[in-house]
Design a protein around this nucleic acid. Structure first.
Lengths: 251, 251
DNA sequence: CTAAAATATTGGTAATAATCAGACATGGTT
DNA sequence: AACCATGTCTGATTATTACCAATATTTTAG
């Protein structure tokens, strides 16, 4: 059972966080016909929240600031575009590990509106975000670090060692002058190392600022990484240099 | 039979916790006709607490703080007094496991202002609360259950089996007519069983309402429990009967 | 590039369910 | 009895959504 208003609010909320919604997907999700979803979209369009287009609708710019809904940080939109790119790499029903970081958290927010994935994480915010989604969520066990809001240590490592997933998405503190991504804490680096060893495809998510930063502990070598996903705001020369070492996905 | 005001308060309470209520569901729950429920909703709408719509009603934004959060607060203060009592049982620097539930969460909030403890938990909200405290916090690993916001399953169990702590504090769904506390889910009950087996002193936290409620799965027998901590609002006769089976700490 | 196939949209209709207004029943009170 | 509060019953009205057929658009294949 579902209230019409409730459905429309949820659609709008999804639209605001994800940017685009599809008629077919919404119809499946809410178990109503296409026509019903279209009426919802038409109504929301009339109210000025979105613009309809073939197959779905997109957020109307300027509508985000409406009092009615959650607002997003300016800064987050860069990270969100990276996360959106990462989303396109996911086969249906695949399993994945999502690491700690602000960009990976954006990915988790987008996954809220997807379903059927098996998602492991060492990050408390990622777990908090995904717990009410229609995905199966697993949290690694162990000691909690305040700074990163993530678990680490032997228990987490041994749990990671017991699984093998399709993909992993990790953040990083930066990789300037380094032959791979880095982390500011050795125990986090150990966790990331273990995660990489237990995923088929390994993706690093990092905006352009990461090109000019680095931390003490190297997580791995670029050759261990399937691809880096970053913005096209990154310096062309730096990107070119990196492309010699690993695949770079721009967005 | 039931008073009208009581019913309306309950409806409002449900609305505040859940966000949406349905006319048909409410009518079934309170055994009155749709028209009666509609009158209830119209009345509550007139008072500004909610917005009616086809099929039910949704919470009015901003109304959350007004209506009778008094009762919620009262309830929370009841739980807090229990948690406060539990605090007095803690030796310095001791280790403990804190289970899932609203009362145990109150305990976690109080522990925010203490330091030097080793605290294990299966509850995400408890971990979220304590992560920025000056205690060492450990989270059990495993699959996340949406409803209780806690982890469960083999990974959690095996991690619990690896430790031995000084005390544990568990919530319960109730224990009327039962020879011990109960839980609504079998997997949660397993977790609680394991926790009890790996703590020296075992405390159950439960306000007086738990005397008249129960769930499907018994966690353990009263003789396995060191003490129940509850309010002195509990019925004297019921308390006396329970005291034959285990220690009862009133506050 | 164009025609055909596949897919999406639109508007109208009908069925189901929810709403509303107001009459009516009940049960306790003065 | 008369009164009031509460809840139920009834029939007319309205909202929501599924279904259908006619168009429009996009994609595919030749």
């Amino acid at each position: 059972m579902q209230l019409m208003n409730e459905r429309r609010e949820l659609i709008l909320e999804e639209l605001i966080t994800v940017g685009t919604v599809y008629v077919s997907e919404l119809a499946r999700k809410y178990q109503v016909t296409y026509e019903t979803i279209r009426k919802d979209l038409s109504d929301l369009e009339k109210k000025g929240y979105l613009v309809k287009c073939h197959g779905g609708a997109t957020l109307k710019q300027g509508a985000i600031e409406h009092p009615f809904q959650i607002r997003e940080k300016e800064n987050a939109s860069l990270k969100k575009s990276i996360a959106q790119k990462a989303l396109t790499l996911l086969p249906d029903n695949c399993s994945m590990i999502i690491g700690t970081g602000s960009t990976t958290l954006e990915l988790a927010k987008l996954l809220m509106y997807r379903s059927g994935f098996k998602i492991f994480t060492d990050s408390l915010p990622v777990a908090n975000t995904l717990i009410s989604s229609e995905n199966q969520v697993f949290l690694f066990g162990g000691e909690l670090r305040n700074k990163s809001s993530s678990v680490y240590g032997g228990w987490a490592l041994s749990m990671i060692n017991e699984i093998q997933v399709d993909l992993c998405f990790l953040g990083t503190d930066g990789f300037s002058n380094l032959t791979g991504p880095s982390s500011p804490s050795s125990s986090d680096a150990y966790i990331d190392k273990a995660i990489i060893a237990h995923a088929e495809k390994k993706y690093i998510l990092g905006d352009y600022t990461k090109f000019n930063r680095k931390s003490l502990y190297k997580i791995c070598d670029w050759r261990d990484i399937t691809a880096l996903i970053t913005n096209n705001l990154a310096d062309q020369a730096q990107v070119a240099k990196l492309e010699a070492k690993t695949k770079v996905i721009l967005c």
